[in-house]
Amino acid sequence: MQWSILQTDVDARGLVLDPRTKLLLLITMAVFVLGGVGSAKLSFFNPVLCLVPFFLLLLSHRVKTAMVSLLLYILAYLIMLFVVPHTMGLINYLLLGTGVVVMRLLPGILTGMYVLSSTTVSEFTAAMRKIHVSEKLIIPLSVMFRFFPTVIDEYSSIKDAMCMRGVNFGGRNAGKALEYRLVPLMICSVKIGQELSAAALTRGLGGNVHRTNVCRIGFHITDTVVMALCAAPYVGLLLSWCGVL
């Protein structure tokens, strides 16, 4: 059940942001933290941006996840700052590798977690329609985002089942491990997919009429704050291109 954090629980999610704000946050994290664009001049801003998902998780009642990952992030930051310069060779490489993975990936993963766990499919669809994305992209996208937790969940169950039979990497039947995990995963995914499309069709997806949506989406004060935070690195990037910074 460790991945249940990716599933949306509408009753207990605390702070609600507009899906469009979340999308902007996701892109900003991908460009500046994961992608590391303009890292030399703007690197001082990265920790600030990285703190955003921790706060968002805190505000949406994911206290434990937020605290654990915040501690992990600070630990990695301190190690990178103080320990790494004094080490050499293999230890240096290992520490550096882990530190980099934690510092670059963790904020991105947390943002992804926050977005997935706090957005319902209806809200996502409503927001996408507001920014005039084609229906041909909205449907696969919304199915996909809802399907990630399912795939991961199914995969971990299959992995457990196969481990019990000794089919795992490094076990007796390592050669079969890949095939014996991929095939069941595909089969159950296809089955779930068929059920999903049947359910969606009975609820009128793909009809000729314009579908209505009861979700209220809109920008509030919190959205403005997050958007301002997201806009800052872009402004910095523009300024550095113009030679100001």
Binding site: I139, P140, V143, M144, F147, F148, G193, S197, G206
Partner: peptide, 21 residues
């Protein structure tokens, strides 16, 4: 024309594909 079922299939397989990748 692509109908809803096709688009749902695209979503599902992209999800599996991406998780593996």
């Amino acid at each position: 024309k692509l109908n809803a079922k096709d688009l749902i299939n695209v979503g599902i397989f992209t999800a599996i594909y991406f998780v593996l990748v």
